[in-house]
Amino acid sequence: MDFALSEEQLELKQAARDWLADRFPLDRDWESTEDRWAELAELGWLDVAEAGLGFVEEALLLEELGYACYPGPYIATVGFALPWLSAEQRARVGAGEERWSVDVDGVPWLGSVDFVVSDGGTAYPARGQEVASVDPSRPMGRLEKADGEPLAGNRNLPRARTASAAEALGVAQRALDLGIEHAKTRLQFGKPIGTYQAVSHPLAQTYTDVELARSLVYWAAWCVAEGDERAPIAAAAATAFATEAAVAACERSIQAHGGIGFTWEHPLHRFYKRALWLEGFGARPAELRLEVANALLE
């Protein structure tokens, strides 16, 4: 067994981190909907199979997209919808021509996409009444189900869930990093506040959450990529753990930041809202744990 990222995987992750930091820095215009979709196509992120890569690499990209709080529908298109699509549709996705999402619980991601997968495998043009979600970069809506066409592919729930878990992992890591940076530089009572254990210990707790979440996410991603029979339970476990970890990481980071963390100006609330969206989209952590329990206690 070798549970370590390869050199190539580490390079891909670092390249994604650098590219995203350049295009989507913390001090960007957060109201902008510019998602540089054409550049994603050029990078090959919209069709990693073309480069001989698989879901583990997609999960690494999703982790980094979460770390940057990327605004576009990458997770919806590549993470959720892709397994439903035909080779031709995938080629159009790879070329950056189509953006997809899926209908979960009757309120799909509607804004910023072209098509929505609904009704167990029917594609609809993304038309309907948009509804703002907790994460403003992920506008939901009520789909107007007209002009539907059946899809060639299949549902892959473990893959979709693991995609959410991977993005949540990136969000958790960023919230932790922001908290650490603040605790090192913010002075009170003449010392960096990270000197005080009341501040540092919750950050240490977040670190353990992030490391454990990473282990579950990579495990689930590997199971999905390899078609391992444990993929469903691994994905449910990873998603329950990582999405909760992301929410908790943001909450602890906001607390560590004090007043500035509660402002609109500071970017932390963007990550918090992303974490809340991930935790709330699809089955919630408690439901996922009940699924795990059903599998274990049969």
Partner: peptide, 14 residues
């Protein structure tokens, strides 16, 4: 019960 099983897997893979 599931929560503890999940934590165990997280520790195992860590």
């Amino acid at each position: 019960v599931a929560r503890e099983w999940i934590e165990l897997q997280a520790l195992r893979y860590t």
